[in-house]
Amino acid sequence: MSWETICKLDDIAPNTGAAALVNGVQIAIFRAGEQLYAISNHCPFSGANVLARGILADINGDICVASPLYKQHFSLLTGQCHEDESVKVDCYEVRLKGKEIELQTSELKAA
C-alpha cells in the first residue's frame, strides 16, 4: 500500500472539492464535514473534468456531488450515478494524516 501526500486540508474549502493530478489521473477530492472522499474528476455525461467543482449534496442520506454542468448526482461512497444506473465513476481511498490529505495510489493506473 502506498500513500501519496496530495495537499493540506486547508487547501480545500470546507464542504467543497478540489482536483488533483496523480500519475496523470485526475482525481476529485472532497471534504464533507469531517470526512474525505475521492472519486474520478471526469464527468461521463459531459466528457469534461469537472466533478471536483460540483456542489456536495445529501440525497436521502447518501453524500453525493452534483455535476456542475448537467447536475447528475454521483455517490461519493460508491461512484454510482443516481440518475442513470448504468453509470458509475471510479472511487479512490483517501485519508487525513495530521493536516495533510493522502491518496492511496497503488491502484492508480498511469495514464
Partner: peptide, 22 residues
C-alpha cells in the same frame, strides 16, 4: 468566504461562466 464557498453554484464558485468543456 470559507463558510459561503460551499454554497455557490457552478459559475459563482469561480466567479466565471463554466462552458461545456470545463
Amino acid at each position: 468566504e470559507d463558510q459561503h464557498t460551499q454554497l455557490q453554484d457552478t459559475n459563482d464558485r469561480f466567479l466565471a461562466n463554466m462552458q461545456k468543456d470545463g
